[in-house]
Write a protein that binds this DNA or RNA. Structure first.
Lengths: 332, 332
DNA sequence: TTGTAGGCGTTATCAG
DNA sequence: CTGATAACGCCTACAA
């Protein structure tokens, strides 16, 4: 391995001068700088990140903890975070938490072990009540659904408001009985309950009551669960002509399940999702959905961690992503 | 920060003994080991990875370079790789190459800078002709589509064979004119050409000629491109009753594009894809596709890098993933 | 403007 | 079985 010493010897200067050149610091004359540059080129020298890290205490790595990287929503988020971090000179290491609070707490604890300068946590399992270990006193930014009043920087989704908008959209299109396929509502305050609230408030705004018989709660927000939910709704005998799905992934399953039951979308049932994953526009029928600005969220989260890395004492902030309701064939 | 020195003082032993306990090395008596464990617990000590890396020369990190992490196929691959690597005590850092040969060469070059112990490269842009920089003399494993005769360890897809099987399946179902939506065939030898070969050979096996008018070449393998390809096929005036799509992502677009054109699947046109992404089973109609064993591929790739990390001199190997043709509604 | 000394936290080596 | 010592490669502080 080529070290600074080798380069220094090659260029006929001291180690320190090489370091100054490498880090673009001043105090090196132009001829010397050029000589050092050449020596670096010639020797193929690369800085040793570990040594630099050991010395400086910073790794240049931001951790990104997501439940599972192979879900479209998180894949997209990760892609944007990697890019945004790259623009600020940071690398991203992805941790999979498996959607469990325990995994998320682990991620926080690991952040120290793995030597991240900061952590972006897309929390799903954790809710405001969990005791997040204080030992993980790294810069942590919560990204996405869950809410943590003031304890962390937080880039939030417009869960309630946007779900209300989607529900209102269904009602505008003439739906009379709007079902909801959501997650477990008894698992604390989280994305699921916030979105459910949005659904309820949109109904209430029109003087409608939510029919509990038109609510299906899922243990996991998967396509398969969405499919089964549709089966359950279809076989319940209760008439319905609209469905709000808690995520697009669930909506894909619902779409599939409605087809299994011989129900056509949007003719028999209209359907709206949440996330605007890439596939939404290409489904048959294409899916009406809430499109939060993913790139904005990622950029904001990265901005917040890097700011906190630079100044750990700054006050925490909460930012809500802008969104758009994208109307497509599933609610024509 | 708590260091080994602190723990050593707390336990009344030397730094070295602490190191031995932390790394589960022998030569420490049980009582001392217990005392050290307690001291670690009490002090909240964590090893400093940078220091360990600096000393040992190993980072415990495997790089995974994929075109874009937010494509379902790569997301899934990444998920499996992360898990397989975790089982062997490695962490995974994801690099996005943007599907360009330049990005992939960068990833190889960066592997050193970023201090990966090894790199798993899911190459798409690179083909056998590119001059892969020899300076990146890290363990590199090629994963997936592209072929690199003997220069690297390689976990390959059964591209030709499986595409032939998919094409034969369409013919078995009664298709007379099978179109193909593929990538650019003039961009060197790669996954695209291999799959096209499979298509041709299946036709040839039945004494059929491929109609060049039923071939659409895409610049990018996206849903949008697939959709446009379907439009082009539908408006060409040439009759066709089957389509082989080069990937599932493209197939989703084709499905959508056929719907735009008023063609029903499978009644008017049958469709087969490649990859078996999670969504395939939930599309309406569900998608017949080639299902390579992703978990197997990931595990094999990790096995190969770790083996090469341990023994850089071992001979390279090439392994082809097992696959299954999953028949679903799109080819009923 | 350039060079020297020392230490970041860990582990390999070898002596006790 | 345990401990002292010396690196690993870089950067901060200070001296020249």
């Amino acid at each position: 391995m080529v070290t600074m010493d080798d380069v220094a010897r090659l260029a006929g200067v001291s180690k320190m001068t090489v370091s100054n050149v490498v880090n673009n610091r001043g105090g090196v004359s132009e001829p010397v700088r050029r000589r050092v540059r050449e020596a670096i080129e010639r020797s193929g020298y690369r800085v040793n990140v570990s040594a630099r890290t050991l010395r400086s205490g910073r790794t240049g790595v931001i951790g990104l903890a997501v439940p599972e990287i192979d879900r479209p929503y998180f894949g997209r988020l990760a892609s944007h975070v990697i890019e945004a971090a790259g623009r600020r000179g940071f690398h991203v290491a992805i941790e999979q938490t498996g959607a469990a609070a325990s995994g998320e707490i682990d991620a926080i604890a690991h952040a120290r072990t793995l030597q991240f300068d900061g952590l972006i946590l897309s929390a799903v399992g954790l809710d405001g009540r969990e005791r997040v270990p204080p030992e993980g006193d790294h810069p942590i930014v919560m990204l996405g659904e869950q809410d943590f009043a003031g304890r962390f920087d937080h880039v939030a989704m417009p869960n309630e408001e946007a779900t209300a908008a989607a529900t209102a959209h269904l009602l505008d299109r003439g739906c009379r009985a709007v079902a909801i396929v959501t997650g477990r509502l008894d698992w604390g305050l989280n994305m699921v309950t916030a979105r459910h609230h949005g659904y309820l408030s949109a109904l209430a705004a029109r003087g409608l009551d939510a029919d509990p018989g038109l609510r299906v709660e899922l243990d996991t927000l998967t396509m398969e669960a969405g499919r089964e939910a549709a089966h359950r709704l279809a076989s319940s005998g209760r008439p319905f002509d609209g469905v709000v799905a808690v995520t697009d992934t669930v909506a894909i399953g619902v779409l599939r399940g409605l087809a299994d039951a011989g129900l056509r979308v949007p003719d028999d049932v209209r359907l709206a999702g949440f996330d605007d994953i890439a596939e939404a526009a290409y489904l048959v029928p294409s899916l009406t959905t809430v499109a939060p600005d993913h790139a904005w969220m990622a950029a904001k989260a990265v901005e917040l961690v890097t700011a906190r890395i630079a100044d750990p004492g700054r006050p925490t902030g909460r930012f809500v992503a802008p969104y758009e309701l994208v109307s497509r064939e599933s609610t024509v």
